[in-house]
Amino acid sequence: MHLPIEIYLVQMMHGLVYGMLIFLVASGLTLVLGMLDILNITHAAFYMLGAYFAYSITLQLGNFWLGLLIAPIFVGIIGVLIERIFLRKTYKGGHLSQLLITFGLLFIFGELVRIIWGTVPLDVSVPKLLEGSIPFGGMTYPIYRLFILCFSVLIFIGITLVLSFSRIGIIIRAAVSDAEMVNALGINIPLVFLGVFGGGAFLAGVAGVISVPFISVHSNTGLEVLLDCFVVIVIGGFGSLLGAFIASLMIGLLQSFGILWIPKLAIVFPFLLMVLVLILRPTGLFGVKE
């Protein structure tokens, strides 16, 4: 079955867009994992909360851009609170307690969302500024999706620049490799962790906000995002930002092309890829840890 090349191009764009969104969420997760050796399952809730907060703010204030501005800040604050209140306690308790608590919290957030906003998927329309489509290789492509792509890439470049060249970035990267050493150098590690945590939550919230107008967001979204992010960091390697970036794009493309070829099994492909990576290269493509 031969499809016109335009369809492949469009699907590719879809895949890239979705991949970038996943990257925004997964980046926070993988950095925290690399630094603290915690897999913060609750992180997936931040995406969902960002979307829901933006929805309410947009509804109340009538302006999507305000939502984009304010919602992630709320999410970031919640992220920090969770780290302070719940995760601090479990550092000593060990991995199992962390897993249980973070999963329990993700679950509770899902239920809270269901209680407050109901189970119907969110309906937010694309902001007026970005409505419509532009011609693209013979077909038209929604402007809004292009916006997401550019916005996400900008954020990615921003993060990379900060991590590579700023003092705080170097500290963060060092902490990912060896937190004890950095602590011994007199740098306030708990504060760095808090910052990365909050920052990661903020980013996930941003991703949630910008995805609402075109992806269906509902109370189970937390779990779906969790699994996608998890697949990404397994494939990309724990603690590796570059790995997360490449893996996210791979997953995005795999899913959108999978839908073209074998729609019923499309959701399986990322999962199969993950199992393959686990067998062949357990530390991921760009794994930092041995």
């Binding site: 699994l227 993950m274 199992v275 686990l278």
Partner: peptide, 23 residues
């Protein structure tokens, strides 16, 4: 596939298998 893995990965990959079977 899973039993060799560290705690977190075992937890989530068994979950992934379950979601797979659910699907």
């Amino acid at each position: 596939f899973c039993v060799r893995l560290k705690a977190a990965y075992f937890a989530l990959i068994t979950l992934a298998f379950q979601m797979f079977l659910f699907a």
